[in-house]
Design a binder for these strands. Structure first.
Length: 304
DNA sequence: CAGCCGTGGGG
DNA sequence: TCCCCAAGGCT
């Protein structure tokens, strides 16, 4: 065949498409987990619920709670019709229970302001309680197939390694990372959405934070971090989050009592789960302030 | 923007 | 045991 023009030299974008994007899309096609919120029949509400639950919480612990949640509240309106305390109770031990409150508040907002339908618009999603930049982009992409830059901890780590050549991304999201994410995003919206979930999956299953399974990685040969000899992270030390003895642990103990109790409890029931009086009172006050607990007219405590 | 907000599994 | 950290958001 004859061509009237010589094929142009590959641009950097085309190199990236060939070396990074295509292999990761192929890898995802073969290795993607079958997760409920990824199935074709998954509703935007199911996706939104999953995203809130997955914030800082592993998939393995989300699965059962997500299923029970969707069974009980298949629509935002169904959840909005119940007291927020029921959301907190059904949240179980997923952690960060304020997320349950935010999800309930989001359900109320969706019901009252969006006719009961999860909005598809990024700005409208962002306005929902508990929905930040990441979650808004994720829902727009995964529930509605939009072309969005989705930058979660997995994506940031994969891009840091494969493109930037560092073991870990910066502590906070940088302009450079946003630009990089935008530059890599395929032009076609459905492909872009798949790309976003594919990079996340690679980060979750292969390009993990500790002991990455590089031997399984589809882009190992193109990985800047590998090509640089896999230098270890040299930034400022990452803050280790202490937990034992903290207010967080104390709040968790107190809320567990309320969660396991139908109705209200006497304060003595709370006093026995934490020895330090000062810390316990402070934690209880913070739960009340957060709206995770209420004080009844009888001086007892309960979920809202 | 640094600090805070839960919980449990794996190495 | 202890340490790391897992699809962030909010103030």
């Amino acid at each position: 065949m004859t061509t009237s023009t010589r094929a142009p030299l590959p641009t950097p974008e085309q190199d990236v498409q060939r070396d990074l994007v295509a292999p990761i899309l192929d890898w995802y096609d073969e290795h993607a987990r079958d997760l409920p919120w990824r199935r074709p029949e998954a509703t935007p509400w199911s996706v939104l619920v999953s995203e809130l639950m997955l914030q800082q919480t592993p998939v393995s612990r989300v699965l059962a709670v997500h299923e029970a949640w969707l069974q009980r509240w298949p629509t935002p309106a169904a959840l909005a019709a119940e007291p927020s305390g029921e959301a907190v109770r059904a949240w179980g031990r997923l952690g960060y229970p304020r997320r349950a409150l935010r999800l309930h508040a989001a359900a109320v907002a969706i019901t009252t302001e969006h006719g009961g339908e999860v909005p598809a618009d990024h700005a409208a999603l962002l306005a929902l309680p508990g929905v930040g930049e990441y979650t808004a982009a994720a829902v727009a992409a995964f529930a509605f197939g939009q072309r969005q830059v989705v930058l979660d901890t997995n994506v940031r780590r994969v891009l840091a390694r494969t493109v930037t050549g560092t073991e870990l991304p910066p502590r906070s999201l940088t302009r450079a990372e946003r630009d990089l994410g935008a530059a890599l995003l395929p032009a076609d919206p459905p492909t872009a959405a798949t790309w976003s979930v594919a990079v996340m999956e690679l980060g979750a299953l292969v390009c993990v934070a500790e002991r990455p399974r590089c031997e399984q990685c589809p882009v190992r040969d193109a990985c800047a971090w590998q090509l640089a000899g896999a230098p270890s992270y040299d930034g400022p030390p990452r803050r280790v989050q202490t937990y034992a003895g903290t207010d967080r642990q104390c709040r968790g103990r107190l809320l567990a009592v309320l969660r396991e109790t139908e109705g209200s409890v006497d304060k003595a029931r709370l006093d026995v789960v934490w020895d330090d009086d000062v810390q316990r009172e402070r934690a209880l006050a913070s739960l009340l302030a957060d709206g995770l607990a209420v004080l009844t007219d009888e001086g007892r405590y309960a979920l809202p």
